[in-house]
Amino acid sequence: MSEAAYNFAYLDEATKRMIRRALLKGLAIPGYQVPFASREMPMPYGWGTGGVQVTAACLTPEDCLKVIDQGADDTTNAVSIRKFFERTAGVATTEHTAEASVIQTRHRIPEQALTEGQILVYQVPIPEPLRFLEPRESETRRMHALEEYGLMHVKLYEDIARHGAIATSYAYPVKVEGRYVMDPSPIPKFDNPKLGGNAAIQLFGAGREQRIYALPPYTQVVSLDFEDHPFEPSKADHDCDLCGAAQSYLDEVITDDRGGRMFICSDTDFCASRRADGLRGRLSPEEAA
């Protein structure tokens, strides 16, 4: 079947209306998980079906789409979702954060600050922050209704009792506008400070779990912590070996079987633009161009 046989952005209009209504209620109640009738998409659950449906409901023909997977534009998941929307929506795509109007992401927030007019769509595997503490949906729903979040603090406290510090390093729970505790999707806690006060609209889609939630721009988002164990965003204690960045989130890459390793920016666009500007790291000497 040709691409022209599909509706714009793959989903039918009735489905988009249903997703759009859920998105608007999500924005009206920041951090609350709105149930929605998630559709089967032409990719398996776990590959971003929630994010893809949210993106499909938001895209206009004029949009420029960027897709990242763990910060990288060139990984399988990112490339296939970008191609999917190139074919079914005919939208322009980019790898540059500043050029994109819609950015779909798996597990990272771009290093470059987002601006008004941009939308960040997160792929979410488990939207319920209390799920590993309480498996019953009926119970977690009631806990959110009653603002009963003591269990989450007990979990963080047990981290401290066992490890001496809060060991949760990704999917670090946050409280939105002093009301709902929310799972920020498995982003590293290094990215948590960017959730709050962000100029862009942040939308979260969980396909298998059939939930949508949202953060309007400039929303107050606080990472849960204790007075004597304050929240600390953490990263590998290195500079990027390719571009020398000291303040970006790093991936560790094993380079041989004798303990050799390098640390590189997880955000490939951020790293590439720094190198294009002539910035160099430990393992990326000046080219003799």
């Binding site: 509706n7 209009e13 988009k16 759009r20 608007l24 924005l27 938001c58 206009t60 609209i201 721009p217």
Partner: peptide
């Protein structure tokens, strides 16, 4: 052109509700 026009109209609704 329902698909394109409702997409643009929705973005106005989304921006309005978000701001």
């Amino acid at each position: 052109d329902p698909a394109a026009q409702s997409a643009r109209a929705f973005r106005a609704c989304l921006e309005a509700m978000a701001r």
